[in-house]
Design a protein around this nucleic acid. Structure first.
Lengths: 192, 192
DNA sequence: ACAATTCTGTACCGTTCGGTACAGAATGAA
DNA sequence: TTCATTCTGTACCGAACGGTACAGAATTGT
């Protein structure tokens, strides 16, 4: 047929995702993207469409990847609180090693949701999925008696989602790991 | 001497602050600013300097205004938990009525802190001041026995600050007041 | 060899951006 | 009045942006 693509589509998309995570949508120029993705403009437009569609693709990928990680972490055997704490610690550590990382949905929500209904809708959808994963874990914890019976799983799950968003903002400027660990423990005391 | 300024400097700055709150720094163009501030470019540059300095001025003003409100709210007589809940409810309500509002520091932190050390520093400073106000209130609550003696005021205060940041992200897409109220109650259970 | 496709690289386009310059009207103090 | 200052309005600048076009090299199947 013809010459095959000379780059890894998934890897390039991952690189774009990292760039958007670090700098947001507007501040990430096409020059930034082509450089960090290791491809030329022509390849970018031919493969992903324009900048906006590339961003949406990165958002979709981020959603799938992070929710997969989250589900796996929270379904870990053992105490649910430990699973949640380890999961959040992992999020923190990952956000720290990826230079200027943080949650892509936090960035997208703050920067774009107020002026773009599609982003607002995707943001809502992501929040609901996250909350669902938390709720499932909390119900498991209530069944084993580990989580207090007075705790409403849906409310506590929504709380943890909101706390995680707050954490991703905090991580932009707070570098002290011990402080962050204490924050997580404080949040988990809601489950008493 | 000469013709006096024909507009209210403070009011114009407040208008700029609202614009930045709603759309962030990059997405707020000079055209947006001059329109919502009701002045011309020449007046803007003559009075506030360039766009960046105007943003810093808005940030400073936002810091003073919001911390003043927060201090007053948390020093209200009566139970501390009630004061905190009313304060957070007020933040939510205010963010809702100001179209596309939300916390200016949340926006600034997410959008600019990763690439601008000055914003990162100001963001840290603001966080510390907020945490300080919370801590003061919590220590008062511990003195009256209202807040559990097992609660560390500094940690709980930092937690509340982070939660408030999460709340400001949540408010970008979550319009249901009852849901938000439950989130606040859940967060306050940390003080048990 | 040939055709089809994708690559790299560069050049270019229209638009918008932040920022400046300037002309003329308005206003107030000396 | 006169002068200094600030206003409004418009026009303009250089730079950067997203996006397109195109030429030529490279790589595959037929």
């Amino acid at each position: 047929m013809a010459r095959p693509k000379g780059f890894d589509e998934a890897a390039a998309l991952r690189a774009a995702m990292e760039a958007f995570r670090a700098r947001g949508y507007e501040a990430t120029s096409l020059t930034d993207l082509t450089r960090c993705m290791g491809i030329q403009k022509a390849s970018l437009y031919g493969t992903y469409g324009d900048k906006w569609q590339l961003f949406l693709s990165a958002l979709r990928r981020y959603e799938e990847v992070t929710l997969e990680i989250m589900e796996q972490a929270l379904q870990q055997p053992g105490p649910v609180r430990v699973a949640i704490r380890d999961y959040l610690s992992g999020v923190v550590a990952e956000s720290r090693c990826a230079a200027g990382g943080g949650c892509l949905f936090t960035t997208a929500t703050v920067e774009l949701a107020p002026r773009d209904p599609e982003i607002a809708e995707r943001s809502r959808h992501y929040r609901e999925r996250m909350t669902g994963v938390y709720r499932q874990a909390l119900e498991r914890g209530k069944a084993t008696g580990e989580v207090g019976s007075a705790v409403d799983a849906e409310t506590a799950a929504a709380f943890l989602t909101t706390f995680q968003y707050g954490l991703s903002v905090t991580l932009k400027t707070e570098p002290d790991a011990a402080t962050v660990a204490r924050l997580i423990d404080a949040a988990l005391s809601v489950l008493d």
